[in-house]
Structures are given as C-alpha cells and as structure tokens.
Design a protein around this nucleic acid. Structure first.
Length: 279
DNA sequence: CTGTTTACCTGGGGGC
DNA sequence: TGCCCCCAGGTAAACA
C-alpha cells in the first residue's frame, strides 16, 4: 500500500534515472490498468522522451515531451521497476516501456491490478490535482491553509486524514502513526480538536512522513523501490500492525478496531478523548 | 452533509 | 495436501 513516503522514494529514484531517456517500444499485457485506449497510449508514449518526475500525494507524474504526462497511482500493490530489458515477465507484469540505448526497461507490475496509469495531454499537474479534488500534499501543507477545511466539518479524525481531498498522501499506515504521535483517538470528531492540537497533529504528520522517506518507506509485502529494494520503516512503526504488543509509551497492549471501514491500531491509554477521561 | 457498503483483484492465512 | 472463506486496503460509486 504505497502512501506518500513510498511514492516519494520511487519518485526520487526515477528522477535520477529517467530524465533524458527515450521510449522505443511499449508492451501492454493487461490494458485495464490504462485509462486510455492502448493504441492511443502507445502512439503518444513511443518515441517520446522522459523529462521530469513529480509527485502529489500518492500520485506520481512522469513528464515527457509533446505535452504528455503519465499520471500513475499504485493503489495497493503497484510497482514501478527498472529491470534488465531481457528479463522475462511474470503474470503480474502489465506494462513494459523499453528504453532507447539502455540495457534497462521500465516495468509496471501489480498483483491486485488496482493501480491506474492515465495519459495526460496538455494537462498541467495543477489542473489534474484540481479535477480530482486532491487537497494539498501532506509534506508541504501548512496549518493555516487547511484549518478552515478542518474546522468546517465534524468527522472522525481517521476518516478526515484518509480523505485525499483534505490532505493528499496519507493512507492507513501513516494515519494511525500520526494519530498515535499526536495523542489523538482515531474516532475523535474533528470539531472537538483545538487549534493547538491541530497544529501538533500537522507537526507530527510532517515528522513521521519525513522519517519514513528517510527510511525508504514501509514494506509489508509488495512495496519495492524501482531497484527492487524493500523499505525499512516497518521496523520504526509504533502502532500499525502491532495489535496486542506493548505500547512504546505506556506498555499497555495496542488495540485494533474498525474505524471508517479500516483496521485501526491505537493505544486507548495514550490517545485521549477531549475530556481527558481516557476511553 | 455524514457514514456504510460494495466493487475492483489476488494472495495469504485459518479452519477443517 | 487441499478446499472454502475471509481478510488486507485506495478509491469511486451507490446507498441509507
């Protein structure tokens, strides 16, 4: 489940490798990952050249010449891999982009097939972000710009942090980590959160995301950076997937419940309700 | 407006 | 060993 830190790790890796490389041919094995018709995709991508790599939230943007941009969302199990061009494909490989005068190819692989690649023609990233109603990127967001949105509704914090139109980039793992670090219960309603608590929430969010990027992201099963390496942040997680293990702060067991339709890990002692009574 | 459920997919794990 | 069933979660869409 690539979230912001995993997508950022991929973006940094591709940024060092792709710019200046031209695509010679393209092989589409499973066309449902493309939101455009395969022929149209090929026509615009083949004999085009990568120029830049950008990211907003969990979206990755590969910019090419002729006003073409590939907007990629990896969803749960999507991978972008740099592989030797002659390496064979397995049943989860859906797209191969062969590069001119390079011993490598760029491959899209996705066990669950939930990921999507969209061809943008003369569409800026800002326009795309606006059309999808994505909020500001979680790494760069400032408290003053999202406080009005936060204040204007009353939803559970877990649901709000997962809502990409509020802030873009958090998924299930980092949402639980952020709420633990900010000592806020996942089920707490946003309307009961003070401005200073909110400021703390965003500060902890920035800290944990930066730390996770420094660790190359979190690998539980499928996530790999383009070179095939796993992330290392799974060993730094404080609550996610730590059900019944001792809380790092109070030693009481981490609990798991269902919030906003997601498995949610938290410490009912360290993460307090607004009245301070605990759970 | 809010929350919940379902669909999209596959592999992994538990139960038997 | 194998089969059945459920679970994992990002997002969109349908629903209460």
């Amino acid at each position: 489940m690539p979230e912001l830190p995993e997508v950022e790790t991929i973006a940094r890796s591709l940024r060092r490798f792709l710019p200046g490389k031209a695509i010679s041919t393209c092989s589409i094995c499973y066309s449902k990952i493309l939101t455009n018709k395969p022929d149209h995709f090929k026509k615009n991508v083949c004999r085009n050249t990568f120029r830049a790599v950008e990211r907003h939230g969990k979206y990755l943007f590969l910019k090419l010449d002729r006003g073409i941009t590939l907007a990629i969302h990896l969803r749960m199990t999507g991978q972008l891999l740099i592989l030797p061009r002659k390496q064979g494909t397995d049943r989860h490989t859906h797209l191969e982009l062969f590069l001119n005068s390079s011993p490598n190819k760029l491959v899209y692989r996705d066990v669950r097939k939930f990921g999507r690649i969209t061809l943008l023609e003369q569409v800026s990233i800002q326009e795309f972000v606006h059309k999808l109603k994505l909020g500001p990127d979680a790494l760069g967001v400032r408290e003053t710009s999202v406080w009005p949105f936060f204040r204007s509704r009353d939803r559970m914090l877990k649901a709000l942090l997962l809502d990409q139109s509020f802030i873009a980039g958090l998924g299930n793992i980092y949402t639980d980590e952020v709420l633990f670090l900010a000592r806020l219960l996942p089920e707490r309603k946003s309307g009961t959160v003070s401005r200073s608590e909110f400021r703390t929430l965003l500060n902890r969010m920035h800290e944990v995301l930066q730390k996770a990027v420094a660790n190359g992201g979190t690998t539980f099963s499928d996530y790999r950076e383009p070179g095939g390496k796993k992330g290392r942040h799974q060993q730094a997680l404080l609550v996610y997937k730590r059900q019944s293990l001792p809380c790092v702060r109070c030693d009481r067991p981490i609990e798991k419940i269902r919030v906003a339709g997601r498995g949610t890990y938290f410490c009912s002692f360290c993460q307090k309700k607004p009245d301070g009574q605990g759970k």
